[in-house]
Amino acid sequence: MSKQVLQFVMLFVGMLLAQVICNRICLFGVAVPLVFIYFIIRLPINLSVNWVMCLSFLLGLCVDIFGDTQGMNALAATILAAGRKPVSLLYFPREYDLGNPVPSIRSLGLSVYAKYMLTAVLLYCVAVFVIQAFSLRHIEITLLRILSSTLLTFLVLLGFDSIATTRREKRL
């Protein structure tokens, strides 16, 4: 158990640093990779919602501090944390075996995991760009940002996953 806690602490710090680097990326002026939500997606599914929200808020706040976005990511991450359970209920099989509660390709299969991840990423991108757009008039740019960022983030996160799985397979 403590090994898993340590892993998630490292994931927390790793995702924060990855996001700090990714803050500099902005493809075609619209697509931003919001990679740090990988941490929220990967939290064990049987962890209490309160814990998920605390950790998500904390991570979002750290990202805000580094990116000077003043609570935007903290709010969106809290929304994602609250919405994670309903999203998982959409796709996860009823008889889901809690032997391995961490959502991953191995425990869920590629199609369920990809659908779960895509929905979570979309939820987050909608939240964060709508919060940003509160003071913006350009609705079409906001929509473009949501769609392109969702796609980019989803692809990058699948890439993360493939790295994580190959390492585990090598170890086996």
Partner: peptide, 16 residues
């Protein structure tokens, strides 16, 4: 969980 959610949402809105 609703109270925790509201608490964090209010906190981030204050910052925002």
């Amino acid at each position: 969980s609703w109270f925790v959610f509201l608490f964090f949402a209010v906190m981030s809105c204050l910052l925002l």
